[in-house]
Design a protein around this nucleic acid. Structure first.
Lengths: 342, 342
DNA sequence: GCGTCAAATGGTAGCGATACCATTCCGCAT
DNA sequence: ATGCGGAATGGTATCGCTACCATTTGACGC
């Protein structure tokens, strides 16, 4: 049917427009527009004619023009630090699904834990006039915050709580997690701890709170290993080796990610250390493998899907119902005791 | 500085437009447009005035209007089956980075291995008039293929080869992988095989070729376990149990994913099976953990980043240089022998 | 038959930018 | 001075759609 690929250069796109469809259907352009956007307001008979014309002409909607005219993009931008961490891809997937149901599409941005990169990203994102923005974390440049506030786009920050949110907020307290871990493990009788982290600002904050709480119990010497980049099994293995060198009497390793913890378990197994008898290991995230490691990994469960769902729901409420209430939602967490700690 | 959040309803967006900037700078709108898009064509002095005006007015570009006028979106859509599989997120990340350098932004779509869902997705994607589309796999509905061909958008299919590509193509032969695995393992003396898969069409094809090649060597009975959904450690563990029940004499398990293989290794360890003495395991993908499992996992290495890079490069060539050559690139693969096979 | 009102449809003027062409500017040779 | 040509800038007509309001249609009661 197609004569030849459209040239798509110069001014005219060469494609079929809504007016062409209207002509083919014998109605006005506005009617076609309504048939597509508010089919309920169009008579069944007309709807049929329009659909037929669309089919016949091979019309492809142009949301770009629609967006310019209506000032609504049906686009929501989501910014995550990295995608390779399943903890974020779960949230992202949940957001995508929830928004998709209401006809919104997601524009993804990857910031790599760098506020400056995030700022650049936001600039491009704002240029596309999204209807809403979902950010990961509350650590943004001052310029970013001002820009977002000034434009008035609905914003949801996730994965954290904050005293001064830009707009809406869905997350949990990382300080609280750190303290709870410390109390929990201290309560079980552990005294010789170490932490294993990567360059993740929220993980660092959890561990800072963890240390502080331990200090309150008189434990001041907590060795740490920290790797740059993303959490990997390898970093977990290297990390345990490093920590054992620093502190041979080590009894419990607290990791900022299940992946790291999995590496620690693996290295322990390789070295003949029994878990939890000789060494306890605690992860973070409750990723899908955590329950199936050897031994099953104790961890802090974060419901990433729920977080995405709540964030998307809050945004939709604002978008669809023009609800003006500011959302502040603590999604909580659970310390999941499996067998890697006892 | 901001008076109050813009209402963003009705027709006027209430924002600062390029014309406002032009007025503030004392130049024509066209000049501001050029200052932003072809700064080389604008006098240094004028450039300065414009930049100042942009700063002062708090102007945020509107790429939507620009796109409508110029018929170029600086947007490339990427469709992947799932994001949780690191093998795809690597490719995706590489694409994003490469395109980002040339000023293109990426619009992500998740198809969930369902051609019908992909078709719906493509409809929305095309409505946004992307400058290019990168697809995963070559398995699309006929309607999708026609639609893509008719619109004339540059398309790159990845992760596969095909006799009838829509446009450009970057991948490798899954049949070839399957046959090579069979020859390789057969050559090392193995005779009792099983396969472990999830509902991934390309993995299925690899295993079909694997079986066929084995049949050529007189091995016809190859038990299989197949799980729906995505590959997880759990499926790997369950899979090995299932397979051992079916075929206690099993000597080598071939998996369609490193994650599954990791699960098999874990279950073997849990059952006291020695790898590779009692059981050999082969994965697929060479994910970042593969070299660090117990024992290190033999696998088929696919360079996902390279694939993304090549795909993005091919697209950019078409977009920037209007190169008309059809690309067909076999990215290849390597069977990586670590210790889980011998 | 006619007024009434809601449902369905149509006409027109933008949305904010860029393509295209026209115009002005400016340095330099004549 | 004058003419010339390239660099820099400006004016205007769209791009394809939807908001807004006007108009038409049709069902109903009296």
């Amino acid at each position: 049917m197609s004569d030849k690929p459209n040239s798509r250069k110069g001014r005219a796109s060469g494609g079929v427009t809504l007016s062409d469809v209207a002509k083919a259907a014998g109605v006005a352009p506005m009617t076609v527009s309504r048939a597509l956007n508010q089919p309920g307001q169009v008579k069944e008979e007309t709807l049929l004619k329009v659909r037929e014309a669309i089919e016949k002409t091979g019309y492809v909607r142009n949301l770009v023009a629609g967006q310019l005219a209506s000032n609504r993009s049906h686009l929501v931008a989501v910014v995550v630090p990295i995608l390779t961490n399943p903890i974020f891809s779960d949230t992202f997937q949940a957001i995508t699904e929830r928004l998709g149901k209401s006809g919104y599409q997601v524009l993804l941005g990857i910031s790599g834990y760098e506020p400056d990169k995030e700022q650049e990203l936001l600039e491009v994102i704002l240029s596309r006039r999204p209807d809403g923005i979902i950010l990961t974390g509350t650590l943004h440049t001052e310029a970013s915050r001002q820009r977002l506030r000034a434009t008035g786009v609905p914003v949801v920050e996730t994965w954290d709580l904050s005293v001064d949110p830009i707009d809406m907020l869905v997350g949990f307290s990382h300080e609280s997690v750190g303290r709870d871990i410390a109390r929990h493990l201290y309560g079980k009788g552990y005294r010789a701890f170490a932490t294993l982290t990567v360059g993740d600002p929220r993980g660092q904050r959890r561990m800072a709170a963890f240390r502080e709480e331990l200090r309150a119990h008189g434990i001041t010497d907590v060795p740490e290993a920290c790797f740059p980049g993303v959490p990997t099994l390898e970093h977990g293995r290297l990390g345990l080796r490093e920590l054992l060198k620093k502190a041979p009497g080590l009894r419990a390793v607290v990791c900022t990610s299940d992946t790291l913890a999995h590496g620690v378990l693996t290295e322990a197994l390789a070295q003949g250390l029994r878990v939890p008898e000789d060494l306890s290991v605690l992860g973070f995230g409750d990723m899908n493998f955590a329950a199936h490691t050897l031994p099953p990994l104790s961890t802090v469960k974060i419901d990433g899907r729920a977080m995405g769902d709540v964030a998307a729901a809050a945004l939709l409420k604002r978008l669809l119902e023009n609800e003006d209430a500011t959302v502040q939602h603590d999604i909580g967490y659970t310390i999941l005791e499996r067998e890697s700690t006892r």
